[in-house]
Design a protein around this nucleic acid. Structure first.
Length: 271
DNA sequence: ATGGTGGGCCACCCA
């Protein structure tokens, strides 16, 4: 089972890139963030044509929006609202246990608030919202035992936790996405269950690794001022079933790209 | 320290 996560930054605008990616990497399950359209405007027919007949969409007009597109049947679709707001930042499904997925697997797809520019809750409510969102995630995941067994959590978490998840650790310590306060909050989310950062299990933490490069930086590849904001975690029972990981860096150089690139995990769930 | 570039959508919001 091939699972991918990608902040697409407008699914309608970038449907040609979604198609290119799906034809090249053949993900069975594709989790998108920042779809930026209402459910009725989601290009569902295009996904069905590509073989993704099972869609769980949680969209809203103009902002945010997440979806899970699957070749396998899905059940138990849940879209939770966080922080008492109407933002579409979460959707979850369970893949039925059949065929190449022998037993059910639950997948959570998150788009964590970016948090604004100033890492100070006193003057920046967006930063407060981000921290509250993470606290609520941690509490809810612990209460619901989300990570207990056969679970995957993916998404744009808008935090680069490790020193090697950013191009310059010292320079970014006061930059939202890499502040110690956020990294500690993300640590609490991870401690809400037996979660494993499966990408870092496959890529040495000493190696630099990014999934996002700002639109504002010229020559993104040469300057390489990236951050690893996009994540795939699994419950510990699934960690040994991941055979390969890839971050599709090339996608940042495609025509009219998203500022994020896909992250892919290959699972062996047949045994 | 500043401003740089992209979304949605039509005055600015967001990243």
């Amino acid at each position: 089972m091939i699972l991918a996560t990608w902040n697409i930054n407008s699914v309608r605008l970038r449907m040609p890139l979604v198609e290119k990616f799906c034809l090249e990497y053949k993900p069975d399950v594709l989790c998108l963030q920042e779809t930026k359209c209402r459910d009725a405007e989601f290009p569902s027919a295009d996904f069905r044509r590509l073989g993704y007949e099972h869609l769980a969409i949680n969209g809203q007009k103009g902002y945010h929006g997440v979806c899970i597109a699957s070749r396998f049947p899905i059940a138990n679709v849940v879209a939770r609202a966080f922080c008492g707001m109407g933002d579409s930042r979460h959707v979850a499904v369970t893949l039925a246990g059949q065929g190449r997925v022998r037993q059910p697997v639950t997948i959570h797809n998150f788009y964590v608030p970016a948090g604004g520019d100033e890492p100070d809750v006193e003057i920046n409510p967006k930063f407060g919202h981000k921290l509250s969102f993470l606290d609520e995630m941690a509490g809810w995941m612990a209460d619901e035992n989300v990570a207990a067994t056969r679970s995957v959590m993916v998404g744009d978490l808008n935090i680069a936790p490790l020193e090697t998840d950013v191009w310059n650790h010292k320079a970014l310590l006061k930059i939202v996405s890499h502040t110690p306060v956020e990294v500690a909050r993300l640590g609490k989310v991870m401690a809400s269950g037996p979660w494993i950062d499966i990408v870092r299990q496959h890529v040495d933490p000493k190696e630099k690794l990014y999934s996002w490069w700002s639109y504002r930086s010229a020559e993104w590849s040469k300057a390489d001022k990236g951050r690893r904001l996009d994540h795939i975690w699994t419950s510990d029972d699934l960690a040994g079933k991941v055979s390969q990981i890839k971050i599709v860096r090339d996608a940042r150089g495609w025509e009219r790209p998203s500022d994020h690139v896909p992250v892919i995990a290959w699972f062996d769930l047949e045994s």
